[in-house]
């Protein structure tokens, strides 16, 4: 009896949780105007892809999609590389001031990113990086959280493995590349998903630094389109689907790593 009640509650909450997503997909396939009716329809009377077509051909969403993809992939690859090197250095090398430097870095995590945006904009403006891919990428090349996570993981790798490689005459970079990185695979996958999803969904900074509409990322373009096409419910739902779908598919494929990563981040801080 208790068990039935428990599962009923959980199923109802699951349905409510998924409902916005279901309605988004469903409405994106409805003929124009159909979603604006009472009672609101749950399924399209006939399935149409015209809104996706409009977005891709007339409203240039293919371009925004590519911008988002290029930026998210670049940020993920660069930051994974840099964070893992720094995390390794903090975990396995002894040098003066190491722990102080690390503590200083972690303490900086409390600074909200918005604080930096005004001077950063002026700075990138002087450097000619406003409205370029680089202007977005520089803020994501390395993250304190990523360094932190990599350090925690690298600490658990036995020193003897590194020593053995050093005995064999491997260069320091070779040790990092062919001993440390392969062992870090699980955390690298986790961090990669985090970074990619974060970069894909990022809104505040791209909105500021990408001033020309040919450079917009999907979220920026969608926010601006949503202001101009308030009445075009079905069109906007198709835009939302195109924005959400890539990260959702990634999550479905790799959800185990994602959820583990959150637990990892919360266990040791």
């Amino acid at each position: 009896m208790k068990k039935v009640l428990l599962h009923t509650v959980m199923v109802v909450i699951a349905i409510l949780t998924l409902l916005p997503g279901f309605w988004m997909i469903s409405a994106s396939l409805m003929p124009a105007g159909e979603a604006s009716a009472y009672p609101p329809p749950f399924v399209p009377s006939e399935i149409t892809f015209e809104h996706y077509d409009t977005l891709l051909t007339r409203l240039g969403l293919a371009r925004y999609f590519m911008n988002s993809l290029i930026l998210s992939v670049s940020i993920t690859v660069i930051s994974l590389f840099f964070n893992s090197m720094a995390g390794y250095a903090f975990a396995k090398y002894r040098f003066a001031g190491r722990d102080k430097l690390f503590r200083l870095l972690v303490a900086e995590m409390v600074i909200p990113a918005q604080v930096t945006t005004l001077p950063l904009f002026l700075m990138l403006n002087k450097l000619g990086l406003v409205n370029t891919y680089a202007g977005v990428i520089v803020t994501g090349m390395a993250t304190i959280y990523g360094i932190f996570l990599m350090r925690q993981f690298t600490l658990s790798i036995p020193d003897s493995l590194i020593e053995a490689a050093r005995m064999d005459g491997a260069s320091e970079f070779k040790i990092y590349w062919s001993v440390i990185l392969p062992l870090c695979r699980p955390i690298l996958v986790t961090l990669a998903i985090f970074t990619f999803v974060g970069a894909w969904s990022d809104f505040f900074w791209p909105l500021i630094v990408l001033t020309d509409d040919s450079m917009y990322t999907l979220p920026v373009a969608l926010a601006i389109l949503a202001g101009e096409h308030v009445q075009d419910t079905e069109l906007m739902m198709a835009g939302a689907v195109m924005t959400v779908l890539p990260v959702m598919l990634l999550f479905i494929a790799l959800q185990r790593y994602y959820i583990q990563g959150i637990m990892l981040g919360s266990v040791k801080g």
């Binding site: 949780t17 998924l18 916005p20 997503g21 309605w23 988004m24 999803v197 894909w200 969904s201 809104f203 999907l218 979220p219 920026v220 969608l222 926010a223 949503a226 906007m236 739902m237 835009g239 939302a240 924005t243 959400v244 990260v247 959702m248 990634l250 999550f251 959800q255 994602y258 959820i259």
Partner: peptide, 14 residues
């Protein structure tokens, strides 16, 4: 967990 992975701007539109 699924809503966590969605893009905030997109769900705000929805």
């Amino acid at each position: 967990f699924a809503p966590v992975v969605t893009t905030l701007v997109a769900v705000a539109v929805v």
